[in-house]
Design a protein around this nucleic acid. Structure first.
Lengths: 123, 123
DNA sequence: CTCAAAATCAGTAATGATTACTGTTTTTAT
DNA sequence: ATAAAAACAGTAATCATTACTGATTTTGAG
């Protein structure tokens, strides 16, 4: 994927500069501080292209809209059903890959979301 | 969760009688064959309640709308980015649970989607 | 470098999934 | 038996996302 456009680069920078998992409109707000007249459609189009190219992850938590993660390496996402926060945890997907190795399914990326209640909300 | 309503029971039956992963409107179409005047809003409300109660799974594949799975036991979902099909594979989440055991996060259910290209589309 | 084709953009309109609302029916529990 | 609570059908409203337009930028061959 060619990363030549100023807009696409700014979007990548926003995603790389946070460990939150912003939604498209949150990315839009942040990118507007750099490129004030960027269009929301441009943000969606680029997030979609970047996700398809495997450079970012699209995290759907089953409620509300999609979230995006600048870290494309598969890992765990702990989603709190109370506050909605998404936390990252490293995880080796070897056991998962082994499980499907003989199914003639060509895996490209994985998204694992664990729903529950986070530390803060559990007090 | 009390399963007393005719509508909710019919929705559960639809989900239990298929290994596809129907969307809300697909569930709606099937349930209408049993209860012709059921409302789409009722389908959404019940799917949402059942999912929250942990009796079904909501599968978001990051494109299009949500899919629902009558099998609430966590397992792998192989999502083909070409044909959109979702296939189930059993998987033991023990290694995942161990990984987060000391994080004070109270897990309730997990959704693992592996994106790639399925057998049929890979020819 | 020059310039035409291709890609991307900003802005806006349209789509479509999901949710919210209203008045009615069903269920529950006293 | 009946009043309160829950769920319903039908419909309107919301809002995330996509599609479309004409303008701008990038690319690549000559």
């Amino acid at each position: 994927m060619k990363n030549y456009s100023r807009q696409r680069e700014a979007i990548m920078n926003v995603l790389h500069s946070t460990d939150m998992h912003p939604t498209a409109s949150q990315v839009y707000k942040r990118v507007r501080q750099i490129i004030p007249n960027i269009s929301l459609g441009t943000v969606y189009r680029n997030l979609s292209a970047l996700s398809e190219a495997g450079e970012i992850l699209t995290i759907s938590v089953g409620e509300g809209c999609d979230h995006f993660d600048g870290n494309a390496k598969p890992h765990l996402h702990l989603h709190c059903r109370n506050c909605g926060n998404i936390a990252d945890v490293e995880f080796d997907f070897k056991s998962v890959e082994n499980k499907i190795a003989d199914l003639s399914f060509a895996p490209e990326t994985s998204v694992l979301v664990i729903h529950g209640v986070c530390k803060n909300c559990n007090k």
